[in-house]
Write a protein that binds this DNA or RNA. Sequence first.
DNA 1: CATGAATGAGCCTTCATTCAT
DNA 2: GATGAATGAAGGCTCATTCAT
Lengths: 192, 192, 192, 192
Amino acid sequence: MAKTSSTPAPRKRRSDAEQNRLQILKAAKATFTRDGAAASLDAIARRAGVGPGTLYRHFPTRDALIEAVYRREVEALGSAAQEFSEAMEPVDALRVWMLLFLDYLGAKHLIVPALNSISGGPKRLYEGSRSVVQQAMRRLVLRAIDAGQIRSDVDADVLLRALLGFPYVPFGGEWRDGARQLVDILIAGSLR
Amino acid sequence: MAKTSSTPAPRKRRSDAEQNRLQILKAAKATFTRDGAAASLDAIARRAGVGPGTLYRHFPTRDALIEAVYRREVEALGSAAQEFSEAMEPVDALRVWMLLFLDYLGAKHLIVPALNSISGGPKRLYEGSRSVVQQAMRRLVLRAIDAGQIRSDVDADVLLRALLGFPYVPFGGEWRDGARQLVDILIAGSLR
Amino acid sequence: MAKTSSTPAPRKRRSDAEQNRLQILKAAKATFTRDGAAASLDAIARRAGVGPGTLYRHFPTRDALIEAVYRREVEALGSAAQEFSEAMEPVDALRVWMLLFLDYLGAKHLIVPALNSISGGPKRLYEGSRSVVQQAMRRLVLRAIDAGQIRSDVDADVLLRALLGFPYVPFGGEWRDGARQLVDILIAGSLR
Amino acid sequence: MAKTSSTPAPRKRRSDAEQNRLQILKAAKATFTRDGAAASLDAIARRAGVGPGTLYRHFPTRDALIEAVYRREVEALGSAAQEFSEAMEPVDALRVWMLLFLDYLGAKHLIVPALNSISGGPKRLYEGSRSVVQQAMRRLVLRAIDAGQIRSDVDADVLLRALLGFPYVPFGGEWRDGARQLVDILIAGSLR
DNA sequence: CATGAATGAGCCTTCATTCAT
DNA sequence: GATGAATGAAGGCTCATTCAT
């Protein structure tokens, strides 16, 4: 019963904390995507191959975990917006980024449902940290306005919202077509 | 095995079953709206002033309850679409109905999150019964197309999706303004 | 969704898992004996001094618990049969073991009712693993047959069944007398 | 509201109370047989085609219902014992009745499990009313003793118990063979 | 740091039981 | 007498959370 130093015991390597954190985030994304934002944290820990206690050390609350997952997803979108802006015409950058965003939403990257169950609504995330996504959208819109390509009263948040609901109505297979048409309509409706 | 109630409990007079059903639906709407579709059924029963067993008699599963709440909401939207169609120009009817729909979504009439947790996704409701909302939207769009007011390739479902996400991004107080702008953009982008 | 415990609750020091398992088994035996195989698992957990969750960790289903209780009881009977066989004349071993078995059944070691509510009847236990009890009985009978002491057509299962019903008819205080007579009759009726 | 003699109204025949009682008993037997003595009373009422309240009027407690079912079964066994006694040699009557009893137990007529969940064990039924079955067995045994066919110390209750356990160990198809052998052994073991 | 056993709150669900109709 | 809606007390079970190891 008492540990004897004679036999070192098949103890797992002091696994890197960062390594674990990453595993948890991956597991969380997959699980949240499948089961929704109310998924069992124990299940996530299990899938990540760590004990529930470890999950807790890294993310003391469910919201903290959701938020972390969210940020990771969103960071990528932010960088993309930056790149597009540097490489394309304003309206094109906007159009392409919107499509990319819909891809993120639809493909398998939840975001929305997760966002929604953060305590007190997603407000905290958006208001508090000025979400990267919102920022990205705002910059893209502003640039298009400055370039005189779209009306100056177009509200970036309005466009964002229009996109966010997209995954909520099921389509058949022509998902991409629907996405493209939505973006087309939004752009067309925003032109000056 | 034989249960013994310590205190016989003050029994409420037999209330009309239909009355109870309504109370439950109201309570469910309010609770789902606040807590999401995973809200406690016990809590709903409590708020409705009935025992949990009564809730179960009326709605044997969570989905049955969500669906019933949903249908009630949606029926009203359906009638509205009809009325607008009979009283206004096609595009105006479309515009006004979209605003009304956003009102429903935003004010406090959830629908969306609830829909989403119906078993097997919301597909069943939509595909099975050709949801009233979807029908309404389709008729309004079709009428506007027939009148030559919007492009003939505009997809009603695409517009619907654009609306559905609206409540997901928090605004400050200018909610109505955002709604109006979104509808404006969508209409503008759909004109022929 | 996030649970908030009003009072953090006094946490017991980490007891050995094996220790708990044993407590649960004991509590289960006692409770099943008194209340039948449909006894409340919560009650068993309570009596064992563990939370309901702990019971579930060890025995995920009611059947798993019943089975575990059963096996524990039965193992002892198996060993006894072995010992008796090595130490006595065949018929005597049979007689003594039958009495021991009745003791187990009657004293307070249920077995029978429990067996009966295992899903799909007790068949699984008996057929699947060739129950220890049945094995014991069969070996004892076989040995007596081989020694030419009882008729060769005596069916061990028939004797077993005769014993199993014993606890079902209430006696006064002369329980042991009844048991002895039953065994005597069975042996007498089996002699060649 | 007021009854008019002009139209007899499609009123269900003032269903005879006795009729209902019988339906309930039948339903109870079938249900107890399938689900055990803890079966849902509501389910029994449903199967009997009456409301739960009606079941309650007839049998105010679960035990009352079990007892009634039991008595009905047992009455038949009692008459049979009488008939056999009048028509056969004592030992033969005993043998045949025991076989009949096993048939009752095994075929589908529960009795035993039901007996067992009566509050305070089956004692009440047996002790209180001197169960018909016990009486029958006692008379048959006594008669065989008086005729000098079996030993005078044979205890009817002991034989009864031996029979009662029979349905508890599953056989293959040779159920009747096992029954016959058991009875043979018991008789053989009881002969003087 | 990590682990996973333990805990208990609270959910869903079933049912015995009552009682207005 | 019969009915079945309503009730509410458990019970089974899940999980977030803690903490000894």
